[in-house]
Simulated scan of single mutants.
Amino acid sequence: MTDATTIDIPGYRTGTWVLDPAHSEVTFSVRHMMISKVRGTFGMKSATLVAPENPLEAKVEASVDVTSVDTKDEARDNHLRSADFFDVENHPTMEFRSTGTRVEDGDFLVDGDLTIRGITKPVTFEFEFGGFGVDPWGNYKAGATAKTVVNREEFGLTWNAALETGGVLVGKDITITLDLQGAHQPA
């Protein structure tokens, strides 16, 4: 295990980074009928990274619009919005707030609290930096991908159906992937 107290990220700038929703996406996948995976997307409402001199002291807050769930099946999407799953009438957003960042075995990890359906649990996202660049309008941008796996039942998403052939309709483990692009906000 490698435990760093600071890291060097070429192109890193201190300050505030704000999500570019037109170039960001939240996706998820879950086992369906124990034989395949269903994939879907959510719209990002907001995300902010406050970046101090030491990247390992950065703070992230993000909000996802759960009402925007899209699995390419309207009936399934409506069921996911219902009280059986996300209960979007009472819990229209999914929230993440970081509690720490670290490097472990060469991986950049962001720990934090994830809130789904009003239930908050600790999770760890593995981050992969895509890099930094300047767009044609002079905006300094950063890109990253983050991934975690959560047990949906720990967040109150317990609905399921038994299958005649054995097993259940919906798996417990959900893989959440964030493909993010943010813009640096000059001080």
Rank of each mutant, 00 (worst) to 15 (best):
E61H: 07
A51I: 04
F108T: 14
K72A: 12
R13Q: 15
Y12V: 02
D87K: 02
G15I: 07
P122I: 02
D135H: 00
D111P: 07
E89Q: 10
A183Q: 12
H32K: 08
E57N: 14
M44A: 15
S68Y: 08
P92R: 06
K147P: 01
V38L: 06
L19F: 01
D73L: 15
H91R: 01
E53Y: 03
D77M: 12
Q185R: 15
H32L: 08
V50P: 01
T145H: 02
T158H: 01
G133I: 02
L109V: 06
G167K: 06
G118R: 09
V50I: 09
D3S: 15
D107E: 14
E25C: 00
F132M: 12
E126G: 11
E128M: 01
R102L: 12
A161M: 13
G182E: 03
T6V: 04
A51C: 07
E57M: 10
L19E: 01
G100Q: 05
V60H: 10
H32P: 11
S29W: 00
F85L: 06
K59G: 11
L80A: 14
G15L: 07
V168Y: 12
A51G: 07
T101F: 09
T41M: 08
T101N: 12
V88F: 01
H79E: 13
M1S: 15
L114F: 11
D65S: 12
V170M: 11
T177L: 10
D77V: 13
G171N: 11
L114H: 08
